[in-house]
């Protein structure tokens, strides 16, 4: 029997929730004097999961928000260690989890490539040999010596994609972000990902795009509250999933998104437009309105793993009434009076 590429045996992961992130020494001491003990809140993200993926298999992971899909990728990537159980990975591994966010803004492109390449586990000399080809793919050769802070968010996403996909890994972990940039560049990304599909790479893909998963994966694991509800044939899994969750059809209308936001833990929902434009359009849905999130604000948030973004067609986003920013609202009022 050959060894599987990825083997999760009875994996359970219990994490601390981030609700108590606001804690500081001052407040802890204050609470202690009041006799309040700080209760650490924990919850089970992955619940005795068994998944075994053979070399060359293409596996899709589906499930509602908060079902543990991205966490599963982090466990496979070794970013998180399971509370119980064993995660075994055989072969080189490349994570592609929202890459491009962790660049050092002060370093130039070449230094950032070297830095990231080594972080990803390659030797510096190897990364150095790939610098040209990475810059070429990202189409950023001319500005190689500029600090990375001068890049637009689209450009830095292009660079992140180019670095992560440059080194042919045995195992590729994809978290939603399949293609970045404008339409032409997205096609280029698609072609590069295709190459992984054609090669004998093992691929684990997390996505809300069920049609894409059904088309490209042989096998699908459907996660629900950290448990595998189904593991098997892709189209069967997608069909079962769609039948089971009425909300999953809700992406079809703006009203459903508003309802979903209201039902969520903090009353907020992040959605991202499926758009051809290079700049990512991200909105926060709250109290029945949507508000556009600027790139700066978004980078601040994306560090928090608890935020998940749902990809929605632009036409559906248009259905949600837009909330003016305070400045715009004031300006409008001025115009009226």
């Amino acid at each position: 029997m050959t060894l599987p590429a990825i083997d999760l045996r009875d994996v359970t992961l219990i994490r601390r929730t981030q609700q108590e992130l606001h804690y500081d020494i001052k407040r802890t001491l204050l609470n202690l004097t009041r006799g309040l003990r700080r209760n650490v809140k924990r919850h089970t993200v992955i619940d005795s999961l068994n998944v075994r993926i053979a070399h060359g298999e293409k596996v899709g992971i589906i499930g509602p928000n908060g079902s543990g899909k991205s966490t599963l990728l982090k466990l496979i990537a070794g970013v998180l260690t399971p509370t119980e159980g064993v995660v075994e990975v055989e072969g080189s591994l490349a994570p592609l989890i929202e890459i491009g966010v962790g660049f050092d803004p002060e370093l130039n492109l070449v230094d950032n490539i070297l830095y990231y390449g080594v972080l990803l586990g390659h030797e510096e000399a190897v990364v150095r040999a790939h610098v040209e080809s990475i810059l070429e793919f990202a189409e950023l050769v001319e500005i190689r010596d500029q600090p990375t802070k001068t890049l637009s968010s689209g450009m830095s996403a292009r660079l992140g994609f180019a670095i992560a996909t440059e080194f042919r890994p045995d195992i590729l972990l994809l978290d939603e972000v399949l293609a970045v940039g404008d339409e032409r560049f997205r096609r280029k990304c698609g072609a590069r990902i295709e190459r992984f599909w054609d090669a004998h790479s093992t691929i684990v893909l997390v996505s809300h795009d069920l049609a894409h998963i059904a088309r490209t994966c042989e096998r699908v694991v459907w996660l629900d509250e950290g448990k595998a509800r189904f593991d098997g044939d892709a189209s069967t899994a997608v069909k079962l999933y769609l039948d089971s969750v009425p909300e999953s059809k809700s992406f079809r209308s703006g009203e459903d998104l508003i309802a979903m936001a209201a039902a969520s833990e903090n009353g907020e929902l992040l959605i991202r437009a499926r758009s051809a434009e290079p700049e990512a359009k991200i909105f926060l849905v709250q109290d029945g309105h949507r508000r556009k999130i600027g790139a700066d604000e978004w980078y601040g948030w994306s560090g928090f793993s608890s935020y998940e973004v749902i990809m929605v067609d632009e036409a559906i986003i248009e259905q949600i009434p837009e909330r003016k920013t305070d400045a715009e609202g004031a300006a409008e009022e001025d115009a009226v009076t």
């Binding site: 982090k74 990537a77 070794g78 970013v79 994570p95 989890i97 929202e98 890459i99 966010v101 962790g102 972080l119 990803l120 586990g121 994306s302 560090g303 793993s305």
Partner: peptide
């Protein structure tokens, strides 16, 4: 400060 990296790559 390196939280984003630690959340993405096994370092």
């Amino acid at each position: 400060a390196n939280g984003t990296i630690l959340n993405k790559i096994a370092v």
